[in-house]
């Protein structure tokens, strides 16, 4: 699950952090975290804006991905799992959107993270889109769930950057709650 060092071609626009894109199919409850880990597939990695758009343009459109799949864009070195040391004290904002609203919001969410628009220091770990039947869930994971000032700042930035409809629900969940 490592694609080796990131390449930075001359002339391309370097990102603050390199990121990895992962894909997974939701395992059944019975498989637990081991099943989840095995279900994760590393799709690609990006270190520059140009590499991001090249990867993005090769991705299947969100509306065409079957239900119960997750796409995860995480900083290189952080696995998109609760158990990763960067995540175990963390949490996530979850936004529920109708399917037709999700594509643009996901694109905005990725751009906001890659462009360091959250002003949250090194708190951001990654973002996830989860496909369901009628709705899609967007999540942004941060390192420290107990840091209320930062989680509030991330929430406010999400509202500003994603153009999400006022009707969309947002809730914060700690990973610890999810593990219980």
């Amino acid at each position: 699950s490592d694609l080796g060092p990131i390449e930075y071609p001359p002339g391309e626009h370097r990102l603050q952090h390199p990121y990895c894109l992962w894909f997974s199919k939701r395992p059944s409850q019975i498989q637990g975290s081991q099943g989840y880990s095995q279900a994760l597939r590393l799709v690609g990695q990006v270190g520059t804006v140009e590499q991001w758009w090249a990867l993005y343009s090769h991705m299947v459109r969100l509306q065409d991905i079957p239900a119960h799949r997750d796409l995860h864009l995480f900083k290189k070195g952080i696995k998109p799992m609760w158990e990763d040391s960067a995540n175990k004290k963390g949490g996530k904002w979850v936004i529920r959107l109708r399917k037709e609203q999700a594509g643009k919001a996901w694109e905005n969410l990725c751009m906001a993270m890659l462009g360091e628009q959250f002003m949250a220091g090194n708190e951001i770990c990654g973002v996830v889109v989860s496909t369901r039947y009628q709705e899609y869930l967007l999540s942004i994971w941060n390192r420290t769930a107990s840091d209320q000032a930062t989680t509030a700042r991330i929430r406010d930035a999400l509202k500003r950057l994603l153009n999400i409809p006022p009707s969309a629900t947002m809730e914060y969940k700690t990973h610890n709650d999810c593990l219980k």
Binding site: G11, H13, V49, W53, A54, G115, E116, Q117
Partner: peptide, 21 residues
Amino acid sequence: GTRIVYEKNFLMNLRNSPSSK
């Protein structure tokens, strides 16, 4: 050090540049 910050419009412009095709 300085953070590398990109706004949405800047990223969108690079999306359509020939080098990212």
